[in-house]
């Protein structure tokens, strides 16, 4: 039901699920490159939050995502509580507490959509959710994403392919041992 395609060189749909990815792209100074390379979406909650990063001189720089949404350079997607409820019904309401509100909105939105969208995150719980729903190939790390568009960088552990694989596998193991969700 939920079809996703592997990363392609033409403009693939890419959902940036957590603010950590966005902040890192700004910190690395490659946000604009990534925006031009992918069809980017973020959740309405993440788009509406204030984000900032420290530049190389240590100065605090504000990120204005609304500006990119308003100019249609990135897309903001929203979910309703009913969609979130449907997503949570497979995991239990407890997952609403474990996830960031922006992440819950993103996952609710993506799990109720049939569009081919890759999910980029640096949060272990997100990859566990994807593994537990047998959707490991929906996830992509920042490292893989940048490599695909020729912007490869040495990144922190949480942005790496190994990190994604570790937690996707953990989620898949949960599924195999009956600890994962049902019905997805």
């Amino acid at each position: 039901m939920f079809r996703r395609m592997r990363l392609k060189m033409n403009k693939s749909k890419l959902h940036l699920l957590d603010a950590g990815i966005i902040v890192e792209l700004f910190r690395l100074g490659i946000w604009e490159n990534v925006v031009s390379h992918f069809d980017i979406s973020v959740s309405e909650i993440v788009a509406g939050e204030a984000h900032f990063f420290r530049d190389q001189k240590g100065n605090r720089q504000t990120i204005d995502l609304a500006e990119f949404v308003d100019s249609n350079r990135i897309q903001s997607v929203f979910a309703t509580p009913s969609q979130a409820q449907e997503f949570l019904s497979h995991f239990g309401p407890d997952h609403a507490e474990r996830l960031d509100p922006g992440e819950l909105e993103s996952l609710a939105c993506l799990f109720s959509s049939s569009e081919d969208t890759l999910i980029c995150s640096a949060d272990s719980i997100v990859f566990i959710v994807l593994g537990a729903t047998d959707n490991r190939d929906w996830g992509v790390s920042l490292e893989e994403m940048l490599k695909q568009c020729g912007l490869a960088r040495v990144l922190d552990w949480r942005f790496t392919r190994k990190f994604r694989e570790k937690y996707s596998d953990q989620g898949f193991q949960d599924r195999m041992t009956g600890m994962g969700p049902s019905g997805l």
Binding site: A19, P101, I125, F127
Partner: peptide, 24 residues
Amino acid sequence: GQMSTGKFAEYLGVSRQEAESYVS
């Protein structure tokens, strides 16, 4: 992987950047 980084930041009352340093 029991909770997200954003939630961790909220639970500890720290910034997201500070929370990320716990992962690293």
